[in-house]
Each structure stands twice: as structure tokens, then as C-alpha cells.
Design a binder for these strands. Structure first.
Lengths: 250, 250
DNA sequence: GCCGATTTGTCCGTATGTATC
DNA sequence: CGATACATACGGACAAATCGG
């Protein structure tokens, strides 16, 4: 990770010319005093994050482009918290509903919880500079967070889970869609002329590998932005074609 | 990749119980007759794609969940082509505009091309079962594809690039947003009651590391879906927190 | 509460294959 | 054709986390 950050820093600061090759792996391993394996893992991270591109027999090419919007971290949503932190705006969370329930068959199918699982169901609204921007529908496994209260939910549930319960979050599966605004969206969010929202559905697993959260985040379109980087698997790998199917054609 | 696919196949077919540990790396390397490093790379791929989760001192945990929607490939857009191929629907591409232009300062800033770069500008509409679903605004570097014609664009530009020009596509940077429909969207797409679209903006690089395409794909909300998987970087790494910022809170 | 076996995380040095120029 | 570059693989070593006795 140190090498990854060192190289990333250099690329962002323009130490390596854009569109040209970085020093070869052999040069880098000498400079950093490590094995080739370690250099390669650092470079693989830069490829994943869209900073460089490698080609066998050629080298590692710098494709960094500091366009306005690409200051965000790859593969993450420019979320409520990040936006406000970046712009220094004011933010708050309000809990509209806090109840306990159990997963019936329909809910189980939608969320991925086993039928009968005891859950908390929360509706929360995030506001930024006083304007409601995100409406969250969340289901949490009750047995993973026995002491959860409305007061905690007003603050940060994740801080509670990690710092109080020492739970660690590991994996989150997300799906992004666009949906028509429903009555609840209109009631809580200031949608103005929009009649749709960006909807992020996520299933989150803790370090024991159990699904403990299902959340649907309904974002005001004007503040929603998601960045991603797709890399073609090298030729010869069986799924070479699938990983760059972002072009809506074939 | 063979090991990756073998394990993936087993997981999908239920050969390993969900929520439990896979055989240890030492067991797997004996079975597959390879080194530990190779097994680990296969497992890393499964982690990236949300099939398993690893924990030091514990093992590799199967978190596969075949809920309806998760049949799509991770990290890719369920695009026009994929949707139609999967559902067996009828699809077609129509070129509404095919012109040459050069990047002025404003276009250069938006697209990432150097000012003055000579480009093709295309507007294309993808229809599925006769219904227009996606409107593409594309800019291509003219010097990368000198023989491009409207006829080729009616078919597959990528097939032309790869099979005729032997160009290979490597990296694509994407941003997903939701935007209000404009006059062009309304003219070409059947938006019905929707007044927004899912917009995927992508910059694509060829194997020489040069940006050769900038495309804005404007998707009908009802057919848009994007899947992703976020993995927490192990503790101790400097960016541990940033990679799982999908929860719209803090 | 400590110890030891097990398991993943990290790293090294070396070797060979393959694409590029 | 050869030098150089990245791609892949092996085998070994030690660290760190987990878990049971």
C-alpha cells in the first residue's frame, strides 16, 4: 500500500508525464527495495482505480486525467457524508420511523434475509444545508445489534456497530437503478420538478459472513453521482469480453 | 482463471454451503495441484465479485446469494446488448447523426480530449423490441478510426475497431448520474411519464493508453440497472474507510 | 489466561512464458 | 534476432488473527 500511495501521489502531482510510460517494474523494485511481486500488486491497484494501464511487452502507461469530477474515489458513491465533507456543507440525519418486525416471505425474497428473521426497520432522512436529499429504508438483523435505539440511529449506526459492538463490515453488494418517486419520496424529499430518484440497494455483510443489513437509499437526482472503472481482463481469460460491457452496443 | 471458474461454478451450484467456510487454501492447492499464490489469486477474484469473504485466521466464507437480480455480472452495466441477449429480445441500432468536428475548449474540458482534436460525433439510438431505449452521444478520435462510416456505426463500432483495425480496448472510466430529460431525449426515446434518465458517461482508452472515445449513454430508467460490489480494504491500510462509503451516513 | 494448531496476509527470490520493439 | 517489458507460476518463509484445549 505504501508503494501504491507513493506512485498515486506522483501521478496526481504530475511527476510522470500523462500518456507515457512509468519506470519499468524492475526499475521500481530497485527504487523501493522490494520484490517484483510487491511492485506488481501496487501497480494492479493503480490499474483498478484507473490511474494506469499495463500492456505486456510494453510497459505501464499513465492515463491519469484530472478532470473536474474525477476527484472522487473510484468505485464509491459520492454519498451524502462525502459530499458534505468535501463542500463543507451542513448535514443532519432524522429518523422518521423506528420499528421492529420480522421478515415475511415477500420481504425475505426482496432483502435476502431468511424468512422469519427478526429485524429493525428504519426510515431515515438525510438533509444537507437544511434540504432533505436522501431517504433511506433500512432493515437490520436485530440479533446483530441488540441495543440499537432511535437515538443511536439519529447519529451514526456504523460508528455504533464498529466502535461499540466491535463489529466490522466487510462486503457490500449494491445495485443502482432509477425509479419513479412514490408518495413517501415526495413527502420527505424536496423533489421539485423531478419525478424520479436514483436508488441504491445494498446488502451488507459483517466479518462473520452474515448479511446484517439491507438498505434502499433513495437519492435526489441532483446530488447523486457514482464513479467506476472497468478494466478489460487480459486476452485468453475466459471472460475477456464481459468486464467492459459498458458500451451499450455490440 | 481456471481455478476461479471452477470455484465459482461450485458456489453457484451449491456445492459449498452458504454462510460456511470453503476448504482452506492449503486444501485447495493440493486439490488443484498449484501453488498457494495461484489459489489466492483465484479467491481474490471471488472476493472482488462478491462470492466469498475472507478473514485472517478464520477462512474463506461463502456469501453467495442467488437472489433474482444477482444473475448479472458484477461491475458491469446490464446494457442494452446484455439485456437483449439474456432475454432473447430483438434489438437494433439506428444512427441519427454522423458528423465530423473538432474539440473546442468547452468540449475538450467536458470530454477530456485535447483542444483541437479531430473527432467524429455520433448520435445513435438503441431499440429493443422496437422501442427506443438508449440514446448515445459519442465522440471518437478520427485518427484512431479513419475509415469509420455511418454504415459501420449502424452495426458494431467495437467489432470494427477490434476485428478490422485490430485495436484493443482496455480501460473505461464511467460516471453514473441521473439527469432531466431534454428535448432530444423526448424526441428519440419513449419516456412516457418519466422526466429523467440514467446517464452513463464513459471515457475509453485503447491499448496505447490514449483516450479515443467519449460517450454519454442516456438510458430509459425502466431498463437501467447497475451492479457493484464494494470490499473493505483490510485494516491498517491507509484508505480502509473510503472503499465502503456506500452507506449514506456516517 | 496461555499455548499451540490452523488459517489467511504479506513478502521474497527465482524461473519461464509471451508480447513488443 | 535479441533485449526488454509485463504475465504467470512456484516454493518457501514469517506475521497476524482465530479458535479450541
Amino acid at each position: 500500500m505504501q508503494i501504491y500511495y507513493a506512485l498515486k501521489e506522483r501521478i496526481e502531482s504530475g511527476a510522470y508525464p500523462v500518456g507515457q510510460l512509468l519506470p519499468s517494474e524492475n526499475t521500481l523494485l530497485e527504487e523501493f527495495g522490494c520484490s517484483r511481486n510487491t511492485v506488481r500488486r501496487a501497480v494492479a491497484g493503480l490499474v483498478r482505480d484507473g490511474y494506469v494501464q499495463t500492456r505486456q511487452g510494453w510497459g505501464v502507461c499513465n492515463i491519469y486525467q484530472p478532470i473536474e469530477a474525477s476527484a472522487y474515489t473510484m468505485g464509491t458513491i459520492e454519498s451524502f457524508a462525502e459530499t458534505t465533507r468535501r463542500t463543507g456543507q451542513d448535514s443532519a440525519t432524522q429518523v422518521a420511523l423506528f420499528t421492529a418486525c420480522a421478515a415475511d416471505d415477500d420481504l425475505a425474497r426482496r432483502t435476502g434475509f431468511a424468512p422469519g428473521t427478526e429485524l429493525f426497520y428504519l426510515q431515515r432522512i438525510h438533509t444537507i444545508d437544511g434540504i432533505p436529499r436522501i431517504l433511506n429504508h433500512s432493515y437490520f438483523r436485530r440479533d446483530c445489534m441488540p441495543g440499537l435505539t432511535k437515538e443511536i440511529a439519529e447519529g451514526s449506526i456504523y460508528r455504533y456497530l464498529e466502535q461499540e459492538l466491535h463489529m466490522s463490515i466487510v462486503t457490500s453488494k449494491r445495485t443502482i437503478t432509477v425509479e419513479r418517486a412514490d408518495a413517501l419520496d415526495r413527502r420527505f424529499l424536496t423533489l421539485e420538478e423531478y419525478n424520479c430518484l436514483a436508488v441504491v440497494t445494498s446488502q451488507t455483510y459483517n466479518s462473520d459472513g452474515i448479511l446484517f443489513e439491507y438498505t434502499q437509499s433513495r437519492h435526489h437526482p441532483s446530488i447523486f453521482r457514482f464513479q467506476d472503472n472497468a478494466v478489460r481482463t487480459p486476452a485468453g481469460h475466459a471472460d475477456a469480453r464481459k468486464r467492459i460491457a459498458n458500451h451499450t452496443e455490440l
